[in-house]
């Protein structure tokens, strides 16, 4: 009788809650495009490395969340028993990549406002990469205009035409493109929450934590981000050519005054 009751309880409470977790998180991330909590935030960044990792800010730094990609690439676990953040009741969401070695994330979402009050990114080994958390919150959230631009149609094909043999790390897709001042281009890759910078450049860059590069023909291709070194190098290992020409149509005209 008792196991049956436990199962019934799990079905009634746990399973539906878990099944709905990605949808709940998606709703919160969509809400965050128009509404944001303000106050005082503590921001800690250990990757990319910097001289002073901790600072304070009046708001949470932006994370280019892409809810559709996120739901596809991450297992979302909801925790309703999380301790409050800045004195406010929160729901905690843990994001674990379904494949590959992408960074793990935890988000704390305000129960009443349904917007983030804190989030953190952890290396696959569990060490903290980035964390931002409001320590004080103003009584009312603010109307904002946030969000990310849509992914240009055909970008993936153009990137693969520019870099034949490139293997996107599991879950990552190209989402944006930018010309570089010194020549070359930067392609942003996203898995919904993590980002990688893929660069075609006339010069090489020294290898370091989260930085891999390869010479292809007369160009250098860099891949930068929070992935283990082998995963970054594996993405570049099959490259056969590097030519920015197929990406030209995705770049803004040089004389545009945007």
């Amino acid at each position: 009788m008792r196991p049956a009751l436990a199962l019934a309880l799990a079905l009634a409470l746990g399973v539906p809650a878990q099944a709905a977790a990605p949808e709940d998180l998606t709703a919160a991330l969509r809400q965050a495009r128009t509404l944001a909590a303000r106050g005082e935030a503590e921001v800690r960044v250990y990757f990319p490395p910097r001289a002073v990792p901790t600072r304070t800010a009046a708001r949470l730094p932006a994370v280019p969340f892409r809810p559709a990609l996120l739901a596809r690439n991450f297992t979302v676990t909801r925790r309703d028993d999380a301790p409050p953040v800045a004195g406010r009741e929160v729901i905690r969401y843990d994001l674990t990549p379904k494949a590959g070695e992408a960074a793990h994330w935890t988000l704390w979402i305000d129960r009443a406002w349904n917007v983030p009050l804190a989030y953190e990114e952890r290396f696959p080994n569990g060490a903290l990469a980035r964390r931002a958390a409001l320590t004080q919150v103003q009584p009312q959230p603010l109307r904002v205009q946030a969000g990310v631009p849509p992914i240009p149609a055909g970008l993936r094909g153009a990137v693969l035409a520019a870099l034949p043999g490139l293997r996107f790390p599991p879950g990552f897709v190209p989402v944006a493109l930018q010309a570089r001042a010194g020549g070359g281009v930067t392609v942003s890759l996203s898995d919904g929450v993590n980002v990688l910078a893929l660069v075609i450049a006339p010069r090489n860059v020294r290898p370091a934590l989260g930085v891999a590069s390869r010479r292809v023909g007369g160009r250098f291709v860099w891949l930068v981000g929070n992935l283990p070194g082998e995963a970054l190098r594996a993405a570049l290992s099959g490259l056969r050519a590097a030519d920015e020409a197929p990406l030209g149509t995705f770049l803004p005209a040089p004389d545009s005054k945007r």
Partner: peptide
């Protein structure tokens, strides 16, 4: 080769505002 900070600067630019 450029120093690794050049790569981190590019990555920083893709992270989003405020980091």
């Amino acid at each position: 080769a450029l120093p690794a900070s050049a790569a981190y600067d590019v990555y920083q630019g893709t992270l989003g505002e405020g980091w």
